[in-house]
């Protein structure tokens, strides 16, 4: 069984393009909106691409800006300059 990885953001203007980028790049991702927050689940693996977020906001974006709107996550994290991957398994 493939378990979900999850990432949760504040429901803010700043997080919205990140959430949209995740939905665009991860076909199996599902977003659940709760008061003040959005929880995204995705089976096995989820990627956040810097370029996709930049396309949505029309400016350079540093992946570490993610920390400003992040609430929680579950999965092993690997980050470099271009993408963050959250995954179960090695």
């Amino acid at each position: 069984m493939t378990r979900n990885v999850t990432i949760t953001f504040q429901n803010t203007e700043e997080a919205r393009p990140i959430i949209e980028a995740i939905e665009a790049d991860n076909q199996n991702a599902t977003a659940v909106v709760m008061p003040a927050m959005v929880k995204i689940d995705c089976p096995g693996r989820l990627i956040i691409n810097r370029v996709t977020v930049e396309e949505k906001i029309g400016r350079d974006w540093d992946l570490q800006e993610l920390h400003l709107s992040l609430i929680s996550l579950a999965g092993n994290v690997d980050e470099d300059d271009d993408r963050i991957i959250i995954a179960w398994g090695s």
């Binding site: 504040q10 927050m37 920390h67 992040l70 609430i71 929680s72 996550l73 579950a74 994290v77």
Partner: peptide
Amino acid sequence: GFSAQSDEARHMT
């Protein structure tokens, strides 16, 4: 709460 939790997400990792 969420400002703290954004740190927690890093602590969890």
